[in-house]
Nucleic acid binder design. Structure first.
Lengths: 243, 243
DNA sequence: GCTCGAATACTCGGGGACGGGTGATCGCTG
DNA sequence: CAGCGATCACCCGTCCCCGAGTATTCGAGC
């Protein structure tokens, strides 16, 4: 009971069984045929464990085992009533409620100051190229798929991701421009800070540009006491924040 | 060697140690102070295991154990030379190379046909509301943070996600409109398909709209035997899924 | 009729993430 | 000075994920 909604693959399984009973391998094939592995991560290891999980929670159940020719057995599953409810409930949640997702580009951006500005620009330009390539390939693949007769209804997620990629592309281009033109706020601080770090020195704190404490005002006193520790000389600022 | 680049939290650890030696708990505090937990998933369980992993691969090493007052011991780590290289290499990859990411909304969209169209619209509208709320809260939080003096350089990732959310918002609105106006291609098929599934019948195949086989042309012959809709034709089908 | 490759159907063991503990200490208050 | 809550610092058991492997069988071509 009260199962943790983890892997979306489980939802996909429920959705497939909503159409008709299937055995796991067939679920995988169907997902492939409909290009759903593009939007829902699929691999066999996960598939079978996810199916087991659903059985254990009573959301699906085995309806029989077939053997055809002398192929291995195939266990066919069907949706139970609780499973049907879970399917609608879970899917509703996914659609109606934006969830915090952590993308790796976001992670990269948030650590960007670690790189020297010039290097950052170079890498961002590389990203632009790659994004453009991906967009073209997507486009091509999409045309093929549509020609095969898959209706738009079954490809909305493509439109979504395509639009996101495009938006990202534009944004990155804009960022590059700002960096190139030098209109990006704090660029000089970036450079200085980076040089000192690379040299193995204590980096300058944010005081340099008006930043005072590493903590929001309300945390006030409580500070990770001994941060000064290692190399730096005795100084009045025991907690040079970024330092 | 040849370690698998998994959790971005590991990268964040490397980045922090690039500035100066720290003990794990301090890394966490620093990330919080800089609002990095917004873009890189942080929890203590992962942090300590990630640190262990980095030590095991020789990318960081313990430089000592401090005890201050009579607090518990704190093991302080520093970056090794291989660690420094890995840091730059990994970060470069994140920035320069777009990676396939699976978001849950994408998963939701790709299974959307499971819901009746009216319900889908309702849920999408809910999403619009929630997105707008989030955007406003972000905006507010951002203002506060900026007033605390965090420079733009340390908040680029916010600009990125904000822009993404905005783009999503617009897109969802557009989709809703199309569905409401009935200009969305295949809407009637959707309705029919859904009703039959709900009634426990075999859903109509895609032949109804010109789609022929579950597989792209080049797979040709090999078809997961029953995909064409067992219920419809006379049953020469040897493996009608359930009995 | 034989071989090669692709498809079928699943198994398994390692590894990593995660969340919920667990003490111990510090500061404040009555 | 006793008690209370907040903070500090870390550990551990569980669950879940995943990718590589395996054994079989069908079909196409020579």
């Amino acid at each position: 009971m009260a199962r943790r909604r983890g892997n979306p693959l489980a939802l996909a399984v429920l959705a497939l069984l909503f159409e008709r009973p299937m055995h796991p391998y067939e679920m995988a094939s169907t997902m492939r045929a409909r290009r759903k592995e593009e939007s829902i991560k699929l691999n066999y290891g996960s598939l079978y464990s996810v199916v087991d999980g659903l059985v254990k929670h009573g959301l699906i159940e085995a309806v029989g085992v077939l053997r055809e020719g002398r192929r291995p057995e195939r266990t066919v599953y069907e949706l139970t009533e609780p499973g049907r409810l879970e399917l609608f409930d879970w899917l509703s949640e996914l659609v109606s409620t934006p969830a915090r997702e952590y993308t790796s580009f976001e992670a990269g951006l948030s650590l960007l100051p670690v790189l020297p500005p010039e290097e950052a620009v170079r890498l961002l330009e590389e990203r632009v190229l790659r994004l453009e390539q991906h967009l073209h390939m997507d486009e091509a693949l999409r045309e093929v798929t549509v020609k095969q007769g898959l209706p738009r209804l079954l490809l909305i997620e493509w439109e979504y991701t395509r639009m996101l990629r495009r938006a990202e592309l534009d944004w990155v281009k804009g960022l590059i421009d700002e960096l190139r033109e030098g209109t990006f706020e704090g660029l000089d601080f970036w450079r200085v800070w980076h040089e000192r770090c690379s040299a193995g020195l204590e980096p300058p704190g944010l005081e340099a540009i008006g930043y005072v404490a590493g903590y929001p005002a309300d945390h006030g006193a409580a500070n990770s006491a001994g941060s000064a520790g290692a190399g730096s000389a005795g100084d009045d600022d025991p907690e040079a924040p970024i330092a």
